[in-house]
Design a binder for these strands. Sequence first.
DNA 1: GGCTATCGTTCTGAAATAGAACTGTCAAAC
DNA 2: GTTTGACAGTTCTATTTCAGAACGATAGCC
Lengths: 155, 155
Amino acid sequence: MKWDALEEEPCSLSRTVAVVGDRWTLLILRECFLRVRRFEAFQSSLQITRHLLSERLKKLVRLGILRRVPYCEAPKRYEYILTQKGLDLYPVIMAMVHWGDIHMGDERGRPLLHEHKNCGKLFNPVMVCSECGEVLHAKQVHVHAGPGRRGADAA
Amino acid sequence: MKWDALEEEPCSLSRTVAVVGDRWTLLILRECFLRVRRFEAFQSSLQITRHLLSERLKKLVRLGILRRVPYCEAPKRYEYILTQKGLDLYPVIMAMVHWGDIHMGDERGRPLLHEHKNCGKLFNPVMVCSECGEVLHAKQVHVHAGPGRRGADAA
DNA sequence: GGCTATCGTTCTGAAATAGAACTGTCAAAC
DNA sequence: GTTTGACAGTTCTATTTCAGAACGATAGCC
């Protein structure tokens, strides 16, 4: 399956995977949420090849997840900054971080701790139902075909 | 960077990416949450090559995300079923589905709708703070180095 | 001029993926 | 008792993608 084909599937997961479903893109987004913004900074902290970094940044800009903003006129230099669409990926990243904290940790403990400024406490991200506020579990969710469904695929 | 190296990074996101950071693995997990369990069923619904499917299933079993359970003695046949570790990936999948619903939709509407059996309503997944219950936004979170941090990388 | 910083592009070999065919086991049908 | 079909993989080759390193462009500073 090609990446472009994924984007056309009648499945929101496929479409999201088409955008962030490769390791470098996810790692680049992690850096974005850690306030990294410049080409050299991404490159040196990720050890990604410059070629791939350039390509991924272009893709993220094209998709409206990052904005390319000049911060220096001469020579022309740009920063890559998350758009609202990009900021909305926060739950995806945090869900992955949390799963890694729980299931892929080592004896030394968590690499990073997250503090919620609103309440001042260290927290875990929890996924809840928008309607009743209860914690979500796969077995309590029933899936229906929606209006955008056409073929056999789903999620 | 090699996949194995990713797993060793002092970063929970890297470690999670090492496991689910490729498109086929994510799509296979989607199918698992939709109750798909057998080799042929994965293959025909995903149009994945048999070779890759075989390899990915092995990897997921090795990592303890799926269990390979015999359902037929002669001939030996197996099903692939989510373990607790696998079920815990539900927030990751749902966060991606929700982002796709919001940002990658088309005019026809959502491909799938999710009903919460507990409250009986169609819902969206929402990520909240485990301590105060408020909705999480990237800008309200402050990141600290944790005990498992060593070098430059983080998330 | 020579040095450094920043942001890329270009090149070549190595690795992963796609696509199709093949293997093996067993049950049921003819 | 031979054929067909379902299931769960493995093997093979061509194509695509990625890694690693070098190269280019632009400008500021000494």
